[in-house]
């Protein structure tokens, strides 16, 4: 759009525009209803539903630190460690587990050349549209945030301080569309 941004929003529970350049920061996008889709071309796409679980029974490592979820005293979740200084400590997301389910995530490329209180006509270009599922159900999603002296918990000198834990349970409402389009200088 290079200077032309969708400006007007209408009843947006959650409408996101993800742009890979900063000028999109001021944009607000309105969701299109099914009928409005008939005004645009190239309506193919896919509709995704399903459930995803992480380390439901444990991961593939079995050692003094990691084990099956039935093993007392061992962690069965996944672990991510990263560091921002060359010789610094490691930020850790540890014991990541849980599952979530969704229904109706859609993916398509479509042209916006109408709607949005007239802004669509000015916009007049294609976007990648992620149609968000109405509800995402989280079940026992949990992880710990920690600081560690080493990347692996099995490395010599390993010390770790768990800072806090997060647990998620229940439904998250995600409505509307996530529109992804390039802007700025490629």
């Amino acid at each position: 759009m290079t200077g032309r941004t969708l400006k007007y929003a209408r009843s947006i529970p959650l409408a996101l525009g993800l742009a890979l350049a900063p000028q999109f920061g001021s944009a607000e996008l309105a969701k299109l209803d099914d009928g409005a889709l008939s005004d645009v071309s190239g309506q193919g796409g896919i509709y995704l539903s399903g459930d995803v679980s992480i380390n439901e029974l444990g991961g593939p490592i079995r050692n003094g630190y990691f084990g099956g979820c039935e093993e007392v005293g061992k962690k069965c979740g996944a672990r991510v460690a990263y560091r921002l200084k060359e010789d610094g400590g490691w930020f850790v997301l540890d014991d990541i587990r849980g599952s979530f389910a969704f229904e109706g995530l859609t993916l398509k490329v479509r042209e916006i050349n109408d709607g949005f209180a007239g802004d669509g006509q000015l916009f007049n270009r294609e976007v990648v549209e992620l149609g968000l599922p109405n509800v995402v159900r989280y079940n026992d999603v949990q992880f710990k945030l920690a600081g560690s002296s080493t990347a692996r918990p099995t490395d010599p000198g390993f010390q770790q301080t768990d800072i806090f834990s997060i647990e998620m349970q229940g439904d998250v409402t995600l409505e509307g569309n996530l529109l992804v389009f390039p802007t700025g200088n490629p």
Binding site: L48, V52, I61, R79, R83
Partner: peptide, 24 residues
């Protein structure tokens, strides 16, 4: 300029049941 000096992901086992349906 190095922004992150290493990332290490361990012990992942991700299972999924997904359906993908073509739509108009």
């Amino acid at each position: 300029q190095t922004a992150v000096y290493g990332v290490k992901m361990q012990n992942f086992d991700i299972k999924a049941n997904l359906t993908a349906t073509p739509i108009q």
